Each structure stands twice: as structure tokens, then as C-alpha cells.
Amino acid sequence: MKYLVTGSAGFIGSAVVEKLINLGHDVIGIDNLNDYYEINLKQARLSRIEHPKFRFVHLDIADRAEVDTLFSQEQFDRVIHLAAQAGVRYSLENPHAYAESNLLGHLNILEGCRHNKVKHLVYASSSSVYGLNGKVPFATSDSVDHPVSLYAATKKSNELMSHSYSHLYNIPTTGLRFFTVYGPWGRPDMAPFIFTKKILDGDIIDINNNGDMWRDFTYIDDIVEGVIRIADVIPTKTPEWTVEAGSPASSSAPYSVYNIGHGSPINLMDFIEAIEVELGIEAKKNFRGMQLGDVYQTYADTQDLFEVIGYKPQVDVTEGVKKFVAWYKGFYK
């Protein structure tokens, strides 16, 4: 099949592209290569997936005309939409970047799918949509009406926009609420990357909420496997579904939402210790309070996803951190 992967120079996007071409699919990847973090890393990810079945297009999903042209020319079978302005804290200072990429950009992708008979749109939501929810593990049946960052609000909006298009135009859409993804080629604004760099440089690492934080760290290979498998599970109409009795993660329309994570949260201090052990260096630590826009715990209930794709994450934190640190030391010499 022919796939479009948006955000193909990103951490998850580049890994998804690599898996798809290894499976024999034709893939076009798009990315605007913005400078939210180092462009050299994005270009390095792209350079390692040069392949006859892959073509990269430098394109911003907020550019309606360019997106429309790409869709009409290429006639994709499926779209895996991972492009977005990422980062919770960055959204506190640069809200308009999120409106352009995460709202307008998502609308442009939906319009492309609508007018070109795309058979399935899989898109990235986020665990951040759970916001003030204190019930764990987070389940897709829970309320997600109280986000604590604009980033989270845009991701909740993506789910709502997708449902409206599934309902109005019969477009099969699947949203994936990603839980803390890490591994080789990871993002420099994420904790594993920040901690590893600072420990190696002899700098002090800031530890929020005095270390009493829990994250459902999920290794990149497990995430990619889930994304690829769910692309084959195309939602269908369910006429008997009702708002009163049904889950908000499904619909009478061809619409689904799933959590995608490891399903076993790790204490932040244990994760830092795993990095320290792998580096052979004890971190210099600065314990501080909870930061604005942060949440105490993420913990995914992923049973419904496991049941439909027949796969559970295989990589534990010890193995995952070992692979990440080995990549980091090799890439940055």
C-alpha cells in the first residue's frame, strides 16, 4: 500500500517509516523540519532511512494548498499522522505554534483524507489529555475534559475533530494516546535525553515534585509495533452504539481511540537510577516542586489495544535505557 507519514523526521515518525518500508510498503514522509529542537538530529534520522520505497517531502501541514496538492497527486491508501508541535512547557510560551500545527494542520490532514478516499487515518493523540484525572490506570472510558496545558487541549481537540469527520464523511479514524516514549533517536526535550546529557556533562539535573513522579515509559520499538498493527484494524460503523451506553473511545461512526503505552508506570527516581547505572555516573540532583502544566502520574490501561492487535510491549526499562544510552554515546561521540 501507499502510506503518508507526517512528522517523518520526528522520533516516532522516522521509526514508523523504517518499519513500513521494511514491510514492503511505499511511503511518502513529510515534515517541516522546524527548529523546536536540533535540526541535525532530524536530518540524521532521515538519512538512515534512504530507500527506493521512501520519498521525503519538506512540507508544513499548516500549508493548506500544499497539503491538498500532495493528497490529490499521491492518492494514499492510509495516513499515519504524527506531525505536531510537541512539548507541554513550550506551549506555555508559544501557544500560537500549537494552534497552527496541531489544530489547523490536523484539519488539513482530515480534509485531505476526506477528498481523496483515504481508507484509514491513524493519528497521534497524547496521554496528556487525561489532565486532572486522578484515577489510575487511565482508561479511554475516563473523562478527558480537563487538560492542564494547551498542548493537551489541542490533542483532545484532534480527537473531537476526527470524530466529526468520521461521522460526517465516513472516514475511518483511530487516535492513539501515546504514553512517555523513549529510546534511540529520541527527542532532546524529553527527560531521558535531558538526564543523560546533563549527567555526562557533569551538570545538575532538576527533579520535579521531589522525585515523586510516575511515568509509563514505553520503548520506541513497542510503540512502532502497535502503530503498524493498529493501521490494519480499520474502524467500522456501529449503528447500535449510543452516547448514553457506549464508551467515548468508540462511536456509531467508524472511529476509535486507544491508549498506547507499556501499562506499568515507573517511578522517576528508578528511571534516573537506571541511567546512572548504565553510565556509571551518579547524577547531581536538584529536587524541586511540581512544575506548571505537569502531571503527577501517567499510567495506561491498554487492554483494549492489546486485544485488537494481539501484541503487548516487550522491552522493560533496564533493557530500554541500556539501548538508549548506547545510542546516545555513539551518536554524540
Rank of each mutant, 00 (worst) to 15 (best):
L292K: 15
K19M: 11
S251T: 08
E244Q: 13
A83L: 01
L33W: 01
S141C: 10
I234D: 03
K323Q: 15
P52F: 04
K237S: 12
D63H: 07
T154F: 02
Q297L: 14
V144W: 01
R55Y: 08
P265T: 06
G183F: 00
Y98G: 01
K322R: 14
E66I: 05
Y37N: 06
K19I: 07
K323A: 10
F195R: 00
M161I: 12
G280V: 07
M161W: 06
D206K: 11
Y36K: 10
V257G: 00
E273F: 09
V227Y: 01
G289W: 04
S264P: 02
K197Q: 13
Y255C: 04
A152Y: 02
A99S: 12
A139W: 05
V295K: 03
S14F: 02
G246T: 07
F306A: 12
G211K: 01
D232L: 08
K322M: 08
L132F: 10
V27S: 04
K333Q: 13
D63F: 05
H167A: 14
L82I: 02
I272Q: 01
A152V: 02
N94M: 10
T302R: 08
L305Y: 04
G226W: 00
E282K: 15
Y332W: 14
K237E: 12
E240Q: 13
M290V: 15
A62G: 11
F179Q: 00
E111F: 09
V257E: 00
A139Q: 13
L132E: 15
R45N: 10
K117A: 13
N158T: 12
K237H: 13
Q291E: 14
F306T: 11
D145L: 14
G134V: 11
Q85T: 08
I220C: 03
E18M: 08
V57A: 10
T242H: 07
N102R: 03
I204S: 09
E319K: 14
V122G: 06
G183S: 03
V5Q: 02
